[in-house]
Design a protein around this nucleic acid. Structure first.
Lengths: 165, 165
DNA sequence: CCCGATTAGTTGTTGTTACAACTAACGGTA
DNA sequence: TACCGTTAGTTGTAACAACAACTAATCGGG
């Protein structure tokens, strides 16, 4: 309890700025998406993940993992998106416990029309204020944090692009 | 709508990692604080801000600004913390519309006993995976993002340490 | 082939947050 | 000093997330 390593002034300053960004950024992303597409950032993220999946389909468990959601949370969100016609639930043939979530054509259209505004917001608030070397630094630093925060690489798609890994 | 500047591969990779950290970090901070102190990160942040303020006291509006909370949100949170004995509301003498939130002795004690575990969590997950130059890079990059996200510098304490600024 | 243990997912409850409506007090102006 | 616009804060409602309890299906022995 007494042998705590407090933060140095430099560390404290960087941490305070970082925590500020972590607090503020979700609100920035949410409000643009809410305003322009009536979607929360999490809902958009779910749709986007499905749109990149083979056959626009993912198991609920896999989708939950890919979006860092608990299964109950995902289940509720998918229900809402299903009511709005963007997703459909399809029973899984191989494992009858499982449910597949599949992006409908309307869901694909929604992603296609929503993506530009979202990317623009990301650019304005995150990417464009940075130089090319800043981007490289950001990538390296976030990769190091993910090594601790997300050891199972649920998120960090280091090998995700390789089909045979 | 058609002239969207999509993200380059490097930008996309950095963005994906960054967004993963932004999604995961709050959960990491929250669960440690919840487990060890029955406090959300936001509640801890409110207490910590008060503990650094002169006379452990801040106007509701000032506290809301310092913690990036809306006034209604802060009002509810302060009510909860008041019920638990960590904060007291004190009428403001100069402006009778205003309410001062003041950290009680129990609140100070709570911060003192909670801080070490919180700092340790921050170290383990954010600071210690980084080198000294990473810290400098992080500080610079987050500063640039805050320039856009938080133009009024509610958060970014560039001059906050100087009493006469 | 049947039983316990595990896995996949859904549903209900409770707490927290956002948003809107409201009250109270200040400040300037006629 | 009486009024109007603005500022400070609280309270009520509605949406979303966390957690727990539940159902249903699979797996792994005996």
């Amino acid at each position: 309890m007494t042998d705590v390593r407090w933060l140095s002034p430099d560390e404290l300053q960087a941490w305070k700025k970082f925590v500020a960004v972590v607090e503020l950024l979700p609100g920035v992303l949410d409000s643009q998406l809410q305003r322009d597409a009536e979607l929360s950032h999490f809902e958009y993220f779910v749709l986007a993940m499905l749109s990149e999946a083979p056959d626009r389909t993912l198991r609920m468990t896999g989708l939950a993992s890919a979006t860092n959601a608990t299964l109950p949370r995902l289940s509720h969100v998918v229900s809402r998106l299903e009511k709005r016609g963007f997703i459909e639930r399809v029973a899984c043939a191989e494992d009858r416990r499982a449910t597949n979530a599949r992006l409908t054509d309307a869901g694909v259209a929604k992603v296609v029309e929503t993506a530009p505004g979202h990317v623009t917001t990301v650019r304005e608030n995150v990417i464009d204020p940075l130089s090319d070397s800043d981007i490289a630094d950001l990538d390296r630093i976030m990769g190091r944090m993910l090594g601790t925060i997300d050891p199972e690489r649920r998120f960090n798609p280091a090998v995700m692009a390789e089909p045979g890994a």
